[in-house]
């Protein structure tokens, strides 16, 4: 009896992510959820600009490449014209919380009935580890070489907390994928975020604390520990919104 095998909707191709990068785990979880909900036929994914720019090569469902930060707007364009389809965006912290903040906030405020998978690895990975809106105080990146300093680079953004204040948000949970227990919990959250869309409850977002071994300069396993020791205390896991925001389609 097969206990675990590669999900069907995860394309059978090698992924370009760095060794130990937990983007891969989240891709797997999304694909497992798509399989279990049986929605691959009706799903359209929106890929960001960032390490996950090639996400469209890794899923078997239709995919659209969004320009940097604009995935929630692109998703709105797809969902509003195809309310019966399942639309999800997969975005990094620079994409969602820097250049795409307006698109994120307004898609949430409108209660777009979409699912957002938000990867928070505290830096711009693809371009080599620059400071992101989620870079933590004192954290060194290539554009905060002396550690992030409040008076110069300002303060990080807590996305789940921020978005939970918007009435259109049905569900906002922050999870992590740095150990088996957390990965299993993350999958439950992702599944709920997709189920919410099927049930037309409004916008659902899962913020995933993720590792970036290469740019953090840590081994993949030490990067998992960094999440425990540094990220989770600063970005507490948990549910920040869980309601029926009656978003999107009901009002059409």
């Amino acid at each position: 009896m097969i206990v675990y095998k590669r999900p069907e909707s995860l394309s059978d191709v090698p992924m370009h992510y760095c060794p130990g990068c937990t983007h891969g785990i989240v891709h797997r979880l999304v694909a497992e959820v798509i399989d279990e909900l049986g929605i691959e036929n009706d799903t359209v994914g929106i890929a960001p600009v960032g390490c996950a720019v090639f996400a469209y090569n890794y899923f078997e469902c239709d995919f659209i490449e969004a320009s940097h930060g604009r995935a929630p707007a692109v998703a709105t364009g797809v969902k509003r014209t195809h309310p019966d389809k399942i639309v999800f965006t997969y975005q990094g912290d620079g994409d969602l919380a820097a250049i795409g903040t307006a698109e994120t906030v307004h898609a949430a405020a409108r209660g777009e009935n979409i699912t957002i998978i938000f990867i928070n690895n505290t830096n711009y990975g693809m371009t080599g580890g620059q400071m992101a809106p989620t870079t933590m105080p004192g954290q060194v990146t290539t554009t905060s070489p002396y550690g992030r300093q409040k008076l110069i680079q300002g303060n990080p953004i807590h996305v789940c907390e921020m978005l939970s204040t918007l009435d259109g948000v049905a569900y906002a949970e922050r999870v992590a994928v740095n150990n088996v227990k957390n990965v299993r919990a993350a999958k439950r959250a992702i599944k709920k975020a997709f189920q919410n869309q099927i049930d037309k409850k409004g916008l659902s977002i899962v913020e995933v604390l993720s590792t970036c071994p290469t740019n953090w300069g840590l081994s993949p396993v030490d990067a998992l520990k960094f999440v425990d020791e540094k990220m989770i205390p600063f970005y507490p896991l948990g549910v920040y919104a869980d309601r029926n925001a009656m978003g999107g389609d009901e009002n059409d």
């Binding site: 009896m1 097969i2 675990y4 095998k5 090698p14 060794p19 785990i25 797997r28 150990n179 990965v183």
Partner: peptide, 20 residues
């Protein structure tokens, strides 16, 4: 013990676990 913890953690989905 076929708990599949390894597969759950694998970022590249290279692991298949079969329980007899």
């Amino acid at each position: 013990i076929a708990c599949a913890s390894c597969a759950v953690m694998c970022p590249d989905a290279v692991i298949t676990v079969i329980k007899e």
